[in-house]
Design a binder for these strands. Structure first.
Lengths: 192, 192, 192, 192
DNA sequence: CATGAATGAGGATTCATTCAT
DNA sequence: TATGAATGAATCCTCATTCAT
């Protein structure tokens, strides 16, 4: 078990290093050797845990995305009202973007570039299934606009990614107050 | 003139090739040699027109962005009502995203990665100054929500980028009807 | 130890190849790839031992120079008479120029071109400190002319470099007899 | 004639630029394009005057060397005494090294590297024929040591090159007084 | 005679990946 | 399992030289 433990530690260290370095330099400007060095590991060791560089990033992506989804729905209860449920999810996503910005920036990079294999990325917004279910309920209840989930997402959730990016680029400060503004705007946009 | 013409042709061909290849493979996975080949030019010739790879992409970015801005405001008349003006601009942006998707995808890539030099990217949304002016008027007139331009942008304009991306990844079809839905959603989100 | 040994072997092979190729073609006409090939090593391997081409040549220079100095003073005893001491050193330098002409030619190239970094070259003739000390003693004893060490060096030691060069270019044969002539001339030139 | 004049001007400008740039950067670090630019000429124009880069440097070398020889013997009268004649020549060479250091440094570079074609360089010290003749007379008259001209040259003339180099590298200042010291040393070295 | 644009060949350097230990 | 050394295949960029004008 000690051995297995050690292995998981190394794998985690590699994934952490990958996120940090890819965030700062981009995928192609991040050499395996640097990832190895930051994880205190030999370059060759990476290949014990991952097939190749692409696999390393793919797995990192999937892991971060799964963390994201878990975080977003951690406190969600599907039996609440549509409005309460949406607000809960939306605020969790906002929290994630603000407090876990390493992760959210990494996801954003992957979602908006050719870094990740098509298969991994093609899943679209299906990982937010509980939110989609909620929207379905909202549409049936006449609360949410009867339009494509992609548009709902684009107008209510995706703006948080943009604001996180703008903050990262020092163009904008995402204060508490701004989050309130953003929430109301999001809610207005998707409701009838 | 024939000579100068030829030069401009080559420069244009290089920029076109850059856009296409960077769109498909990303900046670092696009060798200068491929750009040259696609432009029917020797690799060395690129350096007659651009200082280096970074300069090539920077200039390409600035050129595309300038095309984008020109297109967006081409039909704009600043003396219309806020609603009319916004709709006009919004629809031009939507058109650009749909018909010039090579360009808009390239811009999106650049805006969301480390490809471009800080200075070029840091300009933020200032290139949309007429829109910002319109929003200012709208805020004064009690039509537009009195919130940060970045939030207004994130909720009303940026969604178009996301939808373009989703379409590019075959997750979504941006039909005429969807555009109507998206516009109403955008308008609802930013108005009081 | 086997591993370390191997490393040192490779480094030595690289330095040896560098000397030979730079001697025959000059610094800039010597590609790293040829150095690698001659050392039976991949081009990339060079960069495990040296930072870059400049560093490779700098280190080679320093190493050769240090060999030179060691050789020159190997048999020197600072308690001899000025004449005996000078003759000993002079003959060692002559020997080095004749038997290690690969080395001495390389040094000569470096000393007379812009190949080497200023810092490495600027040391001047200080590496011959024991000889300078001897001259000091000789000046105090009224044996050696009370003139600049640089002139003493130029007239008594540097001629050997010139003769080595002339021999290398097949203009001249540095026979035993010529060495005797050269020594007497050198001695005459620096003594009162 | 106007045309011919112009041509000679360009050729001279090219040779001048070559000297300056090769002095500062070395042969291989001096691109033809820079030579052309410094001479206010198109790169292609160089090839109207010289066959290729090697030819340009060879011709530059021969021209500078010929200037050198002319300068050295300009004031020489072969009917003086050996001592007077030698002193005259030696001082002209010293002057050249001090006042025309661009030229003398260039010559030194060429003489001590692989820059120049063998044929051009192989001439050795034959260009100093009047000096060799003088030495011959001196040997017959029992004034000059009966040893190889190369050794005489190495000990009496070549030191000036070394001192010029040392000065160029800021290790040494070649003052009037030092020149006197150097002359006496040179004379002592070659006389019986 | 003069040129600026164009280029093919080549060179320094990097990096994902492998392999002997 | 873990590694450091090693490398071949790229990649960016430069430059001597040519050619259409």
């Amino acid at each position: 078990m000690a051995k297995l433990q050690k292995s998981i530690d190394k794998r985690n260290a590699l994934i952490k290093s990958t996120i940090e370095l890819v965030n700062n330099n981009g995928f192609h400007a991040t050499p395996m050797s640097k990832i190895a060095k930051m994880a205190n590991v030999s370059p060759a060791t990476i290949y014990l845990y991952f097939e190749n560089k692409q696999d390393l990033v793919n797995q990192t992506y999937l892991e971060v995305k799964s963390n994201y989804t878990a975080f977003v729905f951690e406190t969600y209860d599907k039996d609440t009202s549509v409005k309460t449920g949406f607000e809960l999810i939306w605020r969790r996503i906002a929290d994630f973007n603000r407090t876990e910005c390493e992760y959210s920036f990494f996801l954003h990079q992957c979602n908006n570039t050719q870094i990740i294999d098509e298969p991994s990325r093609k899943e679209g917004i299906r990982h937010l299934q509980p939110l989609l279910d909620l929207w379905k309920r909202g549409k049936q209840g006449g609360v949410i606009k009867p339009i494509s989930d992609y548009i709902l997402y684009a107008c209510s959730i995706n703006p948080l990614s943009f604001l996180m990016m703008a903050q990262k680029q020092d163009q904008f400060q995402l204060t508490e107050e701004q989050v309130e503004d953003a929430f109301l705007t999001a809610w207005d946009s998707i409701t009838l």
